[in-house]
Amino acid sequence: MTFDPSAYGRHAADVYDEAYAHLDPAAAVERLAALADGGPVCEFGVGTGRIALPLVARGIPVSGIEGSPEMVEGLRAKPGGDAVELAVGDFASTRVPGEFSVVVLAFNTVFALPDQAAQVACFRNAAAHLRPGGRFVVEAWVPDPGAFRAGSALRPLRVTEDEVLLEAGLLHPAEQRMTTTKIRLTDTGVRLLPANHRYAWPAELDLMAELAGMRREHRWADWTGRPFTDDSRTHVSVYRRPESA
């Protein structure tokens, strides 16, 4: 099957901000601003600007790569959206001009790439965007195949008075893939938000960074910097390009 980086946005762009309005980007923005130390930031999978626009509001130059023209349209319609230099394409290979202090790939988006080869290419693309000493920051969940029973799972992600968000998934462990669809129930009806994932354990991401010429500098359980432990279900990993070759 041919990978289409625009597919997710075609299904989700019009409800993306509403569906994920409960996610507060403040801790991520604070951490990224500190890591960038005033330098420019490039976000892979910039979406509708959940992280990029607060960084712009802080005076940080931001560029982005996004697979979905619909997501880009949503970002451009927001205050500050015109300040983000954007390229539409696959962030495993698409380039934007410049060298950056930080490249960020947030909210599990590394797993949207279809296979290991594409993920390795993404790490190399990130390294190519970094200035010497720059950092590649990846936010992702820790795979948990044990959460599936007989290769399938259905779990609630969010339950409120006016919204229920569920995720149905099928596990394909031989290829480290998950076929998932989020089911959003509101008083206006039902929306299906399909997305496939090629998951990878943190140590595998570390090896991808090594192949791209970077070394892990930090790994936290979340954007606040809590220690990463055996019980952590998510991680924020920081990989650094050497100051010199």
Rank of each mutant, 00 (worst) to 15 (best):
L86C: 09
S63V: 15
A27C: 05
R76M: 15
A28K: 01
A33T: 04
G39I: 00
G80F: 12
L53D: 03
M71I: 08
V84N: 14
P69I: 03
E30H: 10
H22D: 10
L86G: 14
A33G: 15
P40S: 13
V72L: 15
R76H: 10
A52P: 03
A52C: 05
I65R: 04
L53F: 09
P54G: 06
L86W: 06
P69F: 03
P79H: 04
L23W: 10
V46Y: 01
G80E: 00
A83L: 03
V41H: 13
R50V: 01
K78R: 14
A57S: 14
A28F: 07
R58Q: 13
E85P: 00
E70A: 14
D37I: 07
T48G: 10
S68Q: 04
V46H: 00
A87Y: 07
A87I: 11
E70Y: 00
A83I: 01
V62P: 13
I65S: 04
T48N: 09
G49T: 10
R31Q: 11
G38H: 03
I51A: 09
G45S: 05
G67L: 07
L32A: 05
R76F: 15
G38C: 03
V72R: 08
A27D: 03
G39S: 12
I60E: 14
V29L: 13
A26C: 07
A87T: 08
G38P: 08
V72C: 13
G80M: 12
V84H: 12
E85R: 02
R58V: 05
T48V: 05
G47S: 03
V88C: 13
G64Q: 04
L75P: 02
S63Y: 11
D82I: 01
R50C: 00
A33F: 12
D82Y: 01
P69V: 07
L23I: 11
E73P: 06
D82A: 13
V29I: 11
A87W: 01
C42K: 00
I51H: 12
A34H: 13
A57E: 12
P40D: 14
L86R: 09
P40C: 05
S68N: 06
P25H: 01
R50E: 00
C42Q: 00
A21C: 06
L53E: 01
G38E: 10
V41T: 06
C42A: 13
L35W: 14
A34R: 02
V46T: 10
G74E: 14
E43M: 09
K78E: 13
C42V: 10
A26V: 05
L32Y: 00
I65E: 07
L23P: 00
G45C: 03
V62I: 10
E70I: 02
A26H: 12
S68E: 06
S63C: 15
G80I: 06
E70K: 10
C42H: 03
G38T: 04
T48W: 08
G59V: 12
I65Y: 06
R58Y: 04
P54L: 09
I51K: 07
P54Y: 09
L32M: 05
A87V: 09
H22P: 02
R50I: 00
